[in-house]
C-alpha cells in the first residue's frame, strides 16, 4: 500500500473520487459509531447518577429503613 506502483498509469479523477470518498466516509462513520456507543454508556452513567441522587435525597429522612440490612 505504501509503495506506489510505478507501472500504473495515472488514474482519471472521476474514477478515483468514489474510492477516496468511500475511504474517508468509512473512517468517519466508524468514529461516529464509536461515539454513539460511548454516548450509550454516558447515558447509563447519567441514569445511575439520577438514581443515586434520589437515594441520597431520601436518606436523611428515613435513615432507619436504610440502615437495616
Amino acid at each position: 500500500m505504501i509503495a506506489l506502483h510505478l507501472a500504473l498509469l495515472e488514474i482519471p479523477l472521476h474514477q478515483a473520487v468514489p474510492y477516496v470518498a468511500a475511504a474517508y466516509i468509512a473512517f468517519f462513520a466508524l468514529i461516529l459509531i464509536y461515539l454513539a456507543i460511548m454516548s450509550g454508556k454516558l447515558s447509563r452513567i447519567e441514569r445511575e447518577l439520577g438514581e443515586l441522587t434520589e437515594l441520597a435525597a431520601r436518606r436523611p429522612g428515613s435513615s432507619e429503613e436504610h440502615d437495616a440490612p
Binding site: I2, L4, L9, E10, I11, P12, A16, Y19, V20, F27
Partner: peptide, 18 residues
C-alpha cells in the same frame, strides 16, 4: 496530485497514519 496514482493517492493520508 500524485504523478502515478492521481487523486486516489489521497487515501494515503488517511490510511498510513491511521
Amino acid at each position: 496530485n500524485d504523478a502515478n496514482q492521481g487523486f486516489l493517492q489521497k487515501i494515503f493520508y488517511l490510511h498510513v497514519p491511521l
